[in-house]
């Protein structure tokens, strides 16, 4: 492999990692909710879209108010996006899913699809159907490697995405493994009735799971807004689908699995787009998913489910 080919490869790798980090953040929401109530929260992609819109609005307000400090702006945007998106996540669970505990399996799925339609059209009606362009927040980057005729660049925003995601993942793993909330969550995953009998507030734990998933999706929304600089009311569907694919690929219910799945999907997309064709990148992701599931029916890191007779 000559230097320029290696350079191209590294560039795709960086792009893929940044994209994969975003998918991974959204995928965690799917996986946590699935882990605790065994349902696919189809509206989760819209939650992420809501996060992106709050980010755009907050950025615009800050620009109008003359805030020029990037770190301050970022902090405020993250706080606002997380706060409002978490509120939406909580409400979605309360309104559309909680009344359906113990209902036939497909009922919450349809309710979630209804919620997804509702949120998409709500945002379209209130914010307009046209894409929202946002002035770049973080410019520039560093050139990692300069060869003749090629360069490997990592932009500051890519760096920010990767670092923030790593930090969040570390913090989040600690939260799940060390705190009482995390313990309650894991208990509810194993046996909700028993957890309830032992004094765990199951409803509250489930609500908090949605809130946490929504908060991470909000971060993903902020990052995507900064990364691409343009969003519209439809971005939730596509990203949601990919994150869902990532969650299943990694083994739905498993947190590290979701992150791994997200990274894999991001990398597959980046490399397939680079080397083969951008048009068929989703076909590639889905094909990998199907192949993996054929050999490991519960995903890469999912627990194999034993068929007890």
């Amino acid at each position: 492999m000559d230097a320029s080919a290696l350079g191209t490869f590294l560039q795709y790798l960086i792009n893929g990692l940044a994209l994969g980090a975003i998918y991974g953040l959204i995928a965690i929401g799917y996986t946590m909710v699935y882990g605790i109530i065994r349902m696919i929260n189809f509206a989760h992609g819209e939650i992420y879209m809501i996060g992106a819109f709050v980010a755009v609005t907050t950025f615009s307000i800050l620009a109008a108010a003359g805030v020029t400090s990037v770190p301050l702006a970022l902090l405020l945007v993250l706080v606002m996006a997380i706060a409002f998106t978490a509120a939406y996540g909580w409400t979605v669970e309360r309104v559309a899913y909680r009344p359906l505990r113990g209902a036939p399996k497909l009922a919450p799925l349809i309710s979630a699809i209804g919620m997804s339609i509702l949120l998409q059209n709500y945002v379209m009606q209130t914010q307009g159907a046209r894409p929202k362009p946002l002035a770049p927040v973080m410019n520039g980057g560093v050139t990692l490697w300069q060869g003749d005729g090629f360069a490997v660049n990592v932009s500051y925003i890519q760096l920010f995405i990767i670092l923030l995601t790593v930090a969040l993942m570390v913090g989040f793993t600690q939260l799940i493994n060390r705190t009482a909330l995390g313990r309650a969550q894991r208990a509810c995953e194993q046996d909700r009735t028993m957890a309830g009998l032992l004094g765990i507030n199951v409803d509250r734990t489930i609500s908090l799971t949605f809130v946490m998933g929504a908060a991470l999706a909000a971060v993903a929304g902020v990052l995507v807004t900064m990364y691409y600089g343009v969003i519209d009311f439809y971005i939730g569907f596509l990203a949601g689908m990919k994150a869902f694919t990532a969650a299943v690929l990694g083994g739905i219910g498993s947190l590290p699995g979701a992150m791994l799945g997200g990274l894999l999907i991001g990398l597959i997309e980046a490399f397939f787009t680079g080397y083969v064709s951008g048009a068929y990148k989703d076909v590639a992701s889905f094909s990998v998913l199907i192949l993996v599931l054929v050999f490991r029916p519960t995903g890469l890191m999912g627990r194999p489910d034993i068929e007890k007779v």
Binding site: V95, A96, A103, P108, I113, G114, I117, L118, Q120, N121
Partner: peptide, 15 residues
Amino acid sequence: FRMIVFGIAMIAIMV
């Protein structure tokens, strides 16, 4: 607003 109502109706019927 019809699609909004539509989404609400889907949730309401399921509930």
